[in-house]
Structures are given as C-alpha cells and as structure tokens.
C-alpha cells in the first residue's frame, strides 16, 4: 500500500536554513546539508528546499547546495524558489534536484507549467499554492502572503492539474505558523476533486495534526518545518505514532 509521506521543509536564505512564524521573524535553524542528512537518516520520506532569497547573484550558491544535498542524501528532494523559466529548472535538474516547485511564476505565466511538463515530465513539477480565506472565499496569495490575487484556490488548483503539474503543495496562510492543525476541509476538497497527489502544508503543531490531515484532509503527504527543526516533534516518534494509528507509513 502506498505510504503517506512526511516531508520536512527547509527554507533556505543565503545557504542557511530559516523558518519564520507566519513568514516573518526568521530564526536560524542550521546548515541545510547536515539537516537534510539528519532528516533522511531519521526516516523523512522526501525533503523540500525553498530558497526564499533566490536573487540572481545567489543562484550559484543554491545550485552548489543542491549538488551537495544530491551527493549525500538518498531520498528524493524538491527545490523551489526563483524558478521562472525552463533554464532555471534545467540547472536544478542538472545539479541533482528530483523535482522543482513553482509558485508565483505559475500564476504570472500559467503556460510555464505546460512547458515544464513537456520538457521534464509531470513527476518533476510541483506547483505550490499559498491561499488565504477572505470575504470572497479562498484566494491565492503570492510573495509569502503579501500579494493577493483574484484567483480562487480550487479553480486555480484544477487549472494547475490540467496544465500538467505532478503534485500540488497547498499552504493555508490562515493555518501557517499557528500550530493548530492543517486546513483539512480544503485539503479534502482538493484531494477529492483532483487526480494528482496533494501535499498539506501550514499548521502542524502536534502528531495528531498529521493523523488528521491524512484521514480528514485526505492528504497524500504532509509538510512541516519548525516543529522538526526545533525538535518539538521527532520524525521517528511521529512515524511510530502514525503506524500505531493505522496510517500507512514507511518505517
């Protein structure tokens, strides 16, 4: 049986791992390659690296980091941040990334999803969607929640699938950083209406939250950052708990 996946996310700035609370107030949580190896050994199923600086000058630093990660760890990993054209994706593929994640670039130019699919296949393309519940329903936000778009979360997710994404990483801005659980109602709706895997992100605080998102949220994978970085929950403990709760999981 296909296992539910646990994915630590490493936010990267200038080659270091950071994680903010509600995306502001960054704290340093260590060296990305060391952390990646630790998570891999502890039983993480995949890793996500989000480069939150992603300025042009820093691109080389990121590619070097991706290569160092690919050399050392033996599980799949996704790299996101600052990818706006095929060449960016190709450089990351060559450096050793298994998948890339795009967010704003897909909203600005949705054809990019089709192009990435054609060049590299759906398995390489993760589309990250940040959304917030507003008076007008769930709207897609950009730049870490600073810019509101008029896109509806569910319509955009459908379009993303149709254009050829292999996976959707959905972050609820209402839940992110709150440690009060994932946006399970919306996740379940996404999961039931789409035929690609959905990764839940934003809101993990306890081990029960993971169980809930796999059952109520029907999520295929769950992503979290600070609770792993600051050792509030250890991956072996989490997986042991999920196994006990009869969630299909890799030990």
């Amino acid at each position: 049986m296909l296992s539910k996946r646990i994915i630590p996310c490493l936010d990267i700035k200038d080659g270091r791992t950071v994680k903010g609370v509600n995306f502001i107030g960054l704290r340093d949580a260590g060296d990305p390659v060391d952390l990646a190896e630790l998570y891999s050994k502890e039983g993480a199923d995949e890793l996500v690296f989000l480069d939150i600086t992603a300025t042009h000058e820093k691109r080389k630093t990121l590619l070097d980091l991706v290569t160092r990660v690919a050399e050392r760890i033996n599980i799949p990993f996704t790299v996101g941040g600052g990818i706006s054209e095929i060449d960016d994706a190709y450089a990351l593929l060559k450096a050793g990334a298994d998948k890339i994640s795009i967010n704003s670039a897909a909203v600005k130019r949705p054809e990019l999803i089709n192009e990435l699919n054609t060049h590299f296949g759906a398995q390489f393309v993760v589309v990250a969607i940040d959304a917030k519940k507003t008076e007008d329903g769930w709207k897609v936000f950009l730049r870490g929640g600073r810019d509101r778009t008029e896109l509806n979360l569910f319509e955009w997710a459908k379009e993303v699938e149709e254009r050829g994404a292999g996976e959707i990483l959905f972050t609820s801005m209402n839940h992110d950083g709150t440690k009060s659980g994932f946006a399970n109602e919306e996740l379940a709706r996404l999961s039931e209406s789409l035929n690609i895997p959905i990764i839940a992100s934003g809101g993990a605080g306890t081990m029960e939250h993971f169980k809930d998102t796999f059952i109520e949220g029907k999520s295929d994978a769950a992503l979290a950052a600070s609770i792993f970085h600051f050792k509030e929950i250890s991956i072996p403990d989490l997986k042991g708990y999920l196994k006990q709760e009869k969630i299909p999981i890799r030990l």
């Binding site: 049986m1 296909l2 296992s3 539910k4 996946r5 199923d45 759906a122 398995q123 292999g166 996976e167 035929n195 690609i196 895997p197 295929d220 994978a221 890799r250």
Partner: peptide, 13 residues
C-alpha cells in the same frame, strides 16, 4: 486506470 491519483508517487512495498 482512471480515478487513481497519477503519478503513483511515493513509498510502497
């Protein structure tokens, strides 16, 4: 077959 999530992605026995 249709109805399944595609790709089959992740860890399996």
């Amino acid at each position: 077959k249709p109805g399944l999530k595609i790709p089959h992605m992740g860890w399996n026995n």
